[in-house]
């Protein structure tokens, strides 16, 4: 599939933005700036990028605890994401959600979801809204290999199939559910094979190759928009860091294994490809990196200088139409 030049630039910008956001976020976490645990998705940039390249703000995605990449690919502002991780009032969720619950409903991002698998039916429901209201929108459910053990994934795939909903199931198989290797916990070699059980197309894609992801996602999303129902895409990928910031992955995986994935790095892969095919100039790539590097400095500065939420925020947003929830027994 030919990728238009502005889309190519967007893809590079997005992957590099995810990478730098995760690196910066981890740095800040270790400086004590995050108020809780963070889960880095660096290494997995090609997946959300290649998929969200086909989406607009009118499409919806659901996400996971490892959701920063999905947020960025869906167009969220790095400043407000960083501020959320810092727990600040200017954060995407006013500092009330944190890293694991970043959402932006104006961008069709239905929220990072910290219960493994729990976000999946939300994308199915968004697709149901699309069908019910006659919208052109699609829903994309991002989830990991770990969610394959959750019943709600299978319920969601079956439901989407029998109702022929415009949804794409995007499984980011990063080969580890927390510290559990995929070959131990998942009964099939290729998770995409599970699509057969739900009468939908399933495809396994190199999740380190943004071009391959772009092609596969283009087909699945076009199929959804044509009203032909759901698809499953499995992205074979790798998280460069541990499950969460303080996890030491060398306790359960080898340096050699890590090196083999780093050798296939999605961003370097992309750079080589565009150079070989003269799709983007080195100057352009350098300019993008420079711009994003500055954006991350700005994001940290913004988060750092933002105010803490007012203590009244403890009580707000519980209900829409009930403004005086019990304020604790004090």
């Amino acid at each position: 599939m030919d990728i238009p030049p502005d889309k190519l630039a967007w893809m590079y910008t997005t992957m590099y933005r995810i990478r730098r956001f995760e690196e910066t976020m981890l740095e800040q976490t270790f400086k004590g700036k995050s108020m809780g645990v963070t889960h880095s998705s660096d290494g997995q940039e090609a997946g959300p990028t290649g998929i969200c390249a086909h989406l607009t703000d009118k499409d919806w995605i659901s996400s996971t605890h490892r959701g920063h990449g999905h947020c960025i690919a869906k167009g969220l502002d790095a400043k407000r994401m960083m501020a959320e991780i810092f727990g600040k009032a200017t954060g995407q969720c006013k500092g009330k959600g944190g890293s694991m619950h970043i959402a932006d409903f104006t961008k069709g991002m239905l929220g990072a979801n910290a219960i493994v698998g729990a976000g999946i039916p939300l994308a199915v429901g968004a697709a149901l809204t699309a069908k019910y209201k006659g919208y052109d929108s699609v829903g994309v459910a991002f989830f990991g290999d770990g969610a394959n053990g959750q019943g709600v994934l299978h319920e969601s795939m079956n439901l989407a199939s029998v109702w022929k909903l415009p949804v794409v199931f995007a499984c980011e198989n990063n080969h580890y559910a927390e510290a559990t290797p995929v070959e131990y916990a998942v009964a099939v070699g290729d998770i995409a094979d599970r699509a057969q059980s739900y009468s939908m197309p399933g495809v396994t894609v190199d999740g380190m190759d943004a071009f391959a992801v772009y092609d596969a996602a283009g087909e699945a999303i076009a199929r959804a928009r044509r009203g032909e129902g759901p698809s499953l895409i499995e992205l074979k990928t790798y998280r460069y860091h541990g499950h969460f910031h303080a996890d030491e992955p060398h306790k359960y995986r080898s340096k050699e294994e890590e090196d083999s994935w780093h050798a296939r790095d999605a961003i370097r892969n992309f750079e080589t490809r565009v150079a070989e095919q003269a799709l983007m100039s080195q100057d352009r790539l350098t300019a993008i990196r420079k711009e994003i590097d500055q954006e991350m400095l700005d994001a940290v500065e913004f988060a750092e200088n933002s105010p803490m939420p007012h203590l009244d925020e403890l009580y707000s947003d519980v209900y829409v139409s009930y403004s005086n929830p019990l304020q604790g027994l004090r």
Binding site: P121, L122, G125, A126, L128, E155, S156, L159
Partner: peptide, 10 residues
Amino acid sequence: AGFLGAAVGA
């Protein structure tokens, strides 16, 4: 779980 989750998404 599947259809209640879908209802929430809707």
